[in-house]
Amino acid sequence: MTTVLPSTEEVWDWLSEVPDPEIPVVSVTDLGIVREVRWDEGALVVAVTPTYSGCPATAVIDLMIENHLREKGIENLRLERRISPPWTTDWVSAAGREKLRAYGIAPPVDGTASDGMTASRAARLSGRTNLVIACPRCGSSHTERVSQFGSTPCKASYRCRDCLEPFDYFKCH
């Protein structure tokens, strides 16, 4: 009896159901941390790039991916940690950015994460010294950074000067 392996497209669809444990409205595919899905001699190989090397959620994400794929019937599975090239917020999908905004988190500003630079360094090098972070609630650009450190290491705390609401900004990497 020959077992038919699911297509890599089907596996990608399954992976889009795996939420990020820190921001459950976005999936691991929305964040762009799943880099590759392939079959290798009957084993499903999923390459995952952590958002940064010290991300405390990395082990949890791997476990969630593994559990979800096993629930789908995948028995022979190998997860690979891929650290090069390093993850960048440029890999967050357009749908993922919109989900972040709807959840109340300002998504990373486009074009500020090139080559893994911090947003402020990339902005300086590109001539964009006044990086504008729009409020995800009211859309105002009249915002201010409260702290470089937010509710998780990948976010910074901001406040809108118009609606007065605090919000997180997903920092560029």
Rank of each mutant, 00 (worst) to 15 (best):
V4D: 15
S7V: 02
V11G: 11
V11Y: 02
W14E: 00
L15E: 03
L15H: 01
V18P: 05
V18N: 05
P24A: 08
V25D: 02
S27K: 01
S27E: 00
V34K: 03
V37E: 02
G42I: 08
A47E: 12
T49M: 05
T51K: 07
Y52C: 10
C55D: 04
A57I: 08
A59R: 13
N67W: 00
G73E: 02
E75L: 11
I83W: 08
I83E: 14
S84G: 06
P85I: 04
T89C: 03
W91A: 10
W91Y: 07
G96F: 01
R97H: 11
L100N: 10
L100I: 10
L100G: 03
R101F: 11
R101Y: 05
A102V: 12
Y103H: 14
P107H: 04
P108G: 05
V109R: 11
V109K: 12
D110C: 00
G111Q: 10
G111I: 00
D115P: 00
G116Q: 13
T118A: 12
T118S: 15
R128G: 01
R128C: 06
T129Y: 01
T129S: 06
L131D: 09
I133T: 11
R137Y: 15
R137V: 14
S140Y: 01
S140H: 06
E144G: 15
R145E: 14
R145G: 07
F149Y: 15
G150T: 03
S151P: 05
T152H: 10
T152N: 11
C154V: 02
C154A: 05
K155S: 03
K155E: 03
D162Y: 01
C163E: 13
L164M: 13
L164F: 00
E165G: 14
E165H: 13
F167V: 12
D168C: 03
F170R: 14
K171C: 02
H173S: 14
